[in-house]
Design a protein around this nucleic acid. Structure first.
Lengths: 238, 238
DNA sequence: AAGTGGTCTAGACCACCAG
DNA sequence: TGGTGGTCTAGACCACTTA
């Protein structure tokens, strides 16, 4: 049995999150100062500070030198701000989703992917390529590396009946994700899959997802620019 | 004379950025360890660590416990989850921002733009085109319609010394925004401004912003795909 | 003037990865 | 085993805000 030790700053973060989530601390309430938290949790000020700092970066808190730390405003929402299942999105548009599983296999990691997955060059992982269709029209190619240590049964799935995202969410619940969005000209084989001309601009989203155990998966989602669009809606309620 | 002191960790960050950008440190090269940087800059390890940490969060570096810190892929990157001032973003990369004001005038609204601004076809509004440069390289074209009722003095500004975003934020604080992101082939005149070939894919962000009084502005931000990238970092603590 | 956050130091112990 | 990053401490000085 491996007992994973929870860092002290994580305990403090969770404590603050719980206060906010439960409503005990409302928007724009003052939260305890670094010194108060340090004393309360019997840690150094630097450790209490880190908890406040990270929650600030995550947008839950707002800090103001000289005056204090306050609960931020809720909140941003959008398809970019949440990780959606493409099948659900398509169905919500009243359209029909289906998928083709092009590749599903083990793979030996190169240096770059290994580092991004938190593994080592030469380690084995899983790789899948799934093409998603909306009303019979190919709309998105999903190329995905999966950490085989965290999701050992990935190769036994049938991704024509469940999306990789859906399966991964059930096996290793998301705790964190990063997106990088670029406009690219897709490789010619990708263009063939998507049934577009080779000089069509494509939106490419690289998504890295974490569970509490570490990096779960590294996905490259490519879609033709004229068929697909990302949206986000932010609100700032002062 | 106000002398702004640069924090030590910022100096180290800029040094590392410069090494990467100049090509002295290539992708996946190992960068100096915390201890090496601490000695080199005569700072404590915690300070050197902070520089590496923040650059990692910004996506320029990748860290791996036990093996070291490595250069990630370098591209300009901006966050999707907050509305940032492009001049600030560029300065945080240790680069120099400047802008050219191509157009600044009154304009009669067509049907589509009028509706998006919450006005009526034929109403007058303001229109600006500003080209943003990073280290002398044209990086983003900003085309913006502005609600003249909410920001009456827009035409009197000099957008080479303050960005439209900065000015609008001071005049009509943001309460809400929407983004739509697409990959497009830019019009030929836009390509000329951005100094790119006409078949280069571009990231195009359409941003509509609200203040408490209504729709403030409608901006189309176009950037070359190979120079610019959008990023977001999500956490799920709840 | 007191309290707050912002920066920084000079140590420490640990877990992990390499040779 | 030695180097790396991850966490943590117990101080310190500064800039800023509020009273």
């Amino acid at each position: 049995m491996t007992q994973i030790k929870t860092a002290k700053f994580t305990v403090i973060k969770q404590h603050i999150c719980q206060k906010i989530e439960s409503g005990q601390w409302q928007q724009h309430d003052k939260v305890p100062s670094e010194n108060e938290l340090a004393e309360q949790f019997s840690v150094s000020r630097m450790t209490a500070r880190r908890a406040l700092q990270e929650l600030t970066e995550q947008g839950l808190l707002i800090r103001s030198q000289g005056s204090g730390t306050f609960v931020a405003t809720f909140k941003s929402q959008s398809s970019l701000l949440e990780i959606r299942n493409i099948a659900d999105e398509i169905q919500e548009r009243g359209h029909k989703h289906h998928a083709l599983q092009m590749i599903l296999s083990g793979v030996e990691l190169n240096h770059e992917v290994a580092i991004l997955l938190g593994l080592t060059e030469g380690d084995n992982a899983y790789y899948s390529e799934v093409l998603h269709f909306e009303n019979g029209d190919p709309i998105q190619l999903e190329q995905r590396y999966v950490n085989s240590k965290l999701v050992p049964n990935y190769l036994q799935q049938d991704f024509t009946i469940i999306t990789p995202h859906e399966y991964l969410s059930s096996e290793a619940p998301l705790t964190e994700a990063t997106h990088e969005i670029e406009a690219v000209l897709a490789a010619s084989n990708v263009c063939q899959f998507l049934a577009i001309e080779t000089n069509t601009p494509c939106l490419q989203v690289k998504r890295r997802t974490w569970s509490s155990q570490g990096v779960v998966s590294l996905a490259t989602l490519t879609a033709a620019g004229h068929k697909y669009r990302l949206g986000s809606h932010l609100t700032f309620n002062f």
